[in-house]
Simulated scan of single mutants.
Amino acid sequence: MKGKTIFIIISIIILLLIGCFYAYINALGSMWVLNKPDESPYFVTTKSIIIKNIPLPKGTKITYKKRYFWEKHKQNKLLNEENVTDISFMEGITIDWGGVPITSIHKFFNSEMKGFSVYADFDKLNKNNKTQFSNLWFSCNNNLGITVENTNDWSFNKKNILDIESCGVNNQRYFKEDKNQQRFLDELYSQLMKIKD
């Protein structure tokens, strides 16, 4: 009887270990998928509209957070504006954001952070329109992270912009102990505030 009980316990432990190993392998497998297709729902505008307080031209791709299993890939109509995660303009098309031509805006991935990243195309910036703000942004040669009060407003509304969170990977508010990074972001924010709406 005692031997039978030990055998059952060992069998249960082995089954649990096999189950855990299987779950672990599946988790690793999903991490190793490099080009997993994006199933986020999106809508391509068929006319000029305003989303997140930004006038969007026809052909703009609006991507949304997936809420339901049937919401994936291209949609036939606009979804809830609250769930917008990305706005991307057609290739060759930009809009003005703080005097700088931009190609896309992406909501911060970290849901605890209230803001978005703005991507510029400095090749389309007219030399006559350069400002100290655009020069500083260009020196990062990367996206600009903006924290805002109202997450439903992605426009260049200085009353809504609280700070510049980052400029590329080399200038981040996260690295508080790095005084050079903080000074650069402070100056960038100061120059942003000087741009006319």
Rank of each mutant, 00 (worst) to 15 (best):
N80Q: 09
N80H: 06
N110V: 15
S117Q: 06
I49M: 06
N53T: 10
W70S: 02
P55G: 02
K58M: 09
K52P: 06
S40F: 10
N83V: 06
Y68G: 00
L78E: 12
I102E: 09
K107Q: 12
S48R: 04
K72G: 02
N80L: 10
P55F: 01
E81F: 01
W70E: 03
F69K: 03
W97L: 12
V100Q: 13
W70I: 01
E82N: 12
W70A: 00
S117K: 08
W70Y: 05
D86Y: 12
K65Y: 00
Y68S: 01
T63A: 12
L56H: 04
D86R: 13
K74T: 06
K114Y: 06
Y64M: 02
I105T: 08
K124L: 15
R67N: 10
N83K: 10
K61C: 07
G98H: 05
I87Q: 09
K107M: 11
E112S: 14
K72D: 04
Y119E: 10
L78D: 08
T63K: 11
T94P: 05
E82L: 09
K74I: 09
W97K: 09
W70F: 03
D96M: 14
K65F: 00
I54N: 03
E39S: 07
E91K: 12
K124C: 14
E91N: 10
N83P: 01
N76D: 14
T60P: 03
H106Y: 12
E71A: 00
G59Q: 04
K77N: 12
K124W: 10
E112H: 11
L79K: 06
H73V: 01
V84R: 11
A120V: 13
G98K: 05
Y119Q: 09
N76S: 13
F109M: 14
Y68K: 02
F109T: 15
K107W: 05
K114A: 11
R67H: 03
D121H: 12
P55H: 03
F108L: 08
F122P: 13
